[in-house]
Amino acid sequence: MRSWLFTLVCIAVGAITYAVMRGVHSEYLFVAGYVVLEFVVLATAWNILGGYCGYVNFGSAAFFALGAYTTIFFHKAYPLPIPLLIALSAVVSGIAGLGMGYLTLRLRGAFFSIATLALAVVLQTLVVNWDYVGGSRGAYVIRPQALSAFGLTIPYVEYLFLLMLALVVIAITTARLIERSRLGFGFATIRDDELAAEASGVPTLRLKLIATTLSGALMGMAGAPFPYYIGYLQPASAFGLEYAVNSIAMPMIGGTGSWIGPLVGALLLGTIQQVATVTISSAVNLLIVGLLLVAFVIIAPNGLVGFVTQRLRAREP
């Protein structure tokens, strides 16, 4: 399918989703749906570096929080509309990704992963000690009840949901565009064998930096609307463990080979968690995600998508 056509289909699916949800008339649906979509963006972003290039980022929460705190910073300094904040967050988190990559990617992949693990801890330390953005106490963001534009008025939660839906479309079309391009080929060679990739003329360092920047930027974008969603942002919630673990678990469980895997994984796990948070505790929830992650990497290394395609292929004569 042509890329522009694919983008149109994505937008159409998004529009239908929104229309159906509007029809249900439940604010909760939008509140829960926002989180699921947020995870779709995070999982897709993680997969650009993790699934395509084979570099594991443990610091998704850090990039997400950078986006959220960019919003807080500008909320205090100079209030801007959210779409603009999303763009700014993309720049900040993208630069963070580039910097991390530049410092560690010339070394073995494991060092990059370790550095990202530590990045979350340290950024959190910085934020906790930075009073301007609320420090350890956190910061309030007062959001309007509703948004009016072009003579239409919609509840603010719906507005946030629509923004996140747009980010999902951006993330997925970006991921698919990469897969189909020369860049996607290059990423796959990095995942398979970097030495051979260099010998074939692939500028591996530059490509890895593109991946860390893109992936970081998308994660930052997912974090930008978060303060408006939650209303009161604390370091502990912005740097929440659930972001780090879910953005790895969802692609791993869905399948890391293409954009479909993270989408399936995030929709599935995200929805389960939204249901389970209401019925069981959120800690049990996270434990289940952790156990699923370990189980899947051991038993189904190609995720659900890989498992299904294998089954289908086996059925063919």
Binding site: R182, F185, A188, D192, D193, A196, A197, E198, V202
Partner: peptide
């Protein structure tokens, strides 16, 4: 490699997730 200096490895190091043809696309593309 771009300048025109290519090598083969002692132990073959193909790109396992790509097809044989795609393996050749990589140096052609890059």
């Amino acid at each position: 490699t771009i300048l025109g200096l290519a090598r083969s490895f002692q132990l073959p190091r193909p790109f396992h997730s790509l097809s044989v043809a795609e393996n050749l696309h990589v140096p052609l593309l890059y």
